[in-house]
Design a protein around this nucleic acid. Structure first.
Length: 115
DNA sequence: TGATTGACTATGA
DNA sequence: TTCATAGCCAATC
């Protein structure tokens, strides 16, 4: 079968960025999309994360929406699995939402210091 | 091939 | 401030 190199590349980029998320930090789909130059394609990041389940090294629990809400927690098998993993990284989660999200927020565009 | 969906975000009321 | 709608692009049905 045939894969779209651009799409595959996009997915790879998403995985790469997510892997760069340091311990105790989180980021948003939009931030990743923005770093990839697809700020309007934040949904594609979510789609990539859906496929990220094929990649065991993807800390998807560090990726939330712009409000810091664990929108994808249901994709971790357990509804509490995601917040538990975040709790292990000293990230407080209240009502499926990261406490002081902006303090834990990690912007790849800034952290990776794009050229 | 065409229509619908989706781990989102931004804007308007 | 909260709710509803539009836009985005790719994958799935």
């Amino acid at each position: 079968m045939k894969y779209s190199l651009e799409t595959e590349n996009f997915f790879e980029r998403v995985y790469h960025v997510v892997r760069q998320i340091p311990y105790g930090r989180v980021t948003s789909y939009g931030a990743i999309a923005n770093y990839l130059g697809a700020a309007r394609s934040s949904r594609m990041v979510g789609w990539a994360m859906n496929a990220a389940h094929t990649q065991p090294d993807i800390p998807a629990h560090r990726v939330v929406n712009r409000n810091g809400v664990l929108t994808g927690k249901m994709h971790f098998g357990s509804s509490i699995a995601m917040e538990q993993m975040l709790a292990e990284e000293d990230i407080a989660v209240d009502n499926d939402k990261i406490v002081d999200f902006k303090l834990h927020f990690w912007d790849p565009s800034t952290a990776l210091s794009k050229a």
